[in-house]
Amino acid sequence: MLCYINITEQNNVTLRGDDLNLISKKDLLAITGISYGQLYRWKRERLIPEEWFIKQSAYTGQETFFPREQILSRVKSILELKDKYSLEELAKILSPETSLTKITIKDLYEIEEINKGLLELLPKIYKNDYYDFIDVVFIVAVSESTTKAGLTNQQCAELIGYSIPVVSKQKSTNITCTVFSVGEEYHMVISPSSLSLDFDGGIQIIDRLSLSEVADKIKIKYDNKFI
C-alpha cells in the first residue's frame, strides 16, 4: 500500500489548495451571508480555530482559504446556535479540546447515533469501564459511517478495536479518520485534519470522518452529558 501525505503547515499552505478541498474567504462570506466582522469576532472568541485560516499567495498579495467542509459546517452550527447560547458557551461547545466527561456503556445506549448491535460487542473489544468524550465521538462516527457503507456489526467492532487505542490518545477532535479496505479487510488511518492523504489504486476509500464535525453535533445534542 502506498500512502502519500500532503502537509499543510499552520496558516501557510505548502501544497495544492484543491487537495484539501479549500474554500476562499470571499466565497465563504458570499455562500453563508456572514460579514467580515462576524468571521473575525468568531475567530477571536475561538469559535473558529486559527489553524483553519490558511494563507496562500495571490496576485493581491495574500488570500485566506479554509477547509471547505469543516468551515461550512462550523458556520452553520454557529448561526443555528448563536441565539440559544452566549459566545462563551458556544466556544466551549465547539472547542476542539475534548470534554473531560467520562461516561459508562449504559450512557452510550442513550446516544441514538450508535448502532445498538455494535454496543453489545463493544465491551469485548474495549475493556475500560468508562468512555472518554473522544471515544464516544469516534464510536458515533464509525457507527454512522460503517452502517451507511454496509459493514456488519462485527466488522465495525473489529475496526474500532484496531483504532480506538490510537484515537483515545488524541487531545483534540481536529482529526480525520480515513476508513479504507484492502481486499476483505477494513482499516483506518488517523491523521490531523490539516493532512491530506492520497492512496494508491489498490486501496478503496470507504469514508473520511471528520471527528470535529461529529463532536460539535454530539456536544450540542447531548449537552447535559458533555458540557
Binding site: 460579514s35 467580515y36 498579495g61
Partner: peptide, 22 residues
C-alpha cells in the same frame, strides 16, 4: 498597513497594500 479586512472601512491618509470590505 499590509491588509485591512472589515465589514465597514473608513480611511484617511493611510497607506495600505490590500483593503477588503463591504
Amino acid at each position: 498597513i499590509k491588509l485591512i479586512e472589515a465589514t465597514t472601512i473608513e480611511l484617511s491618509d493611510v497607506t495600505v497594500s490590500t483593503v477588503n470590505g463591504r
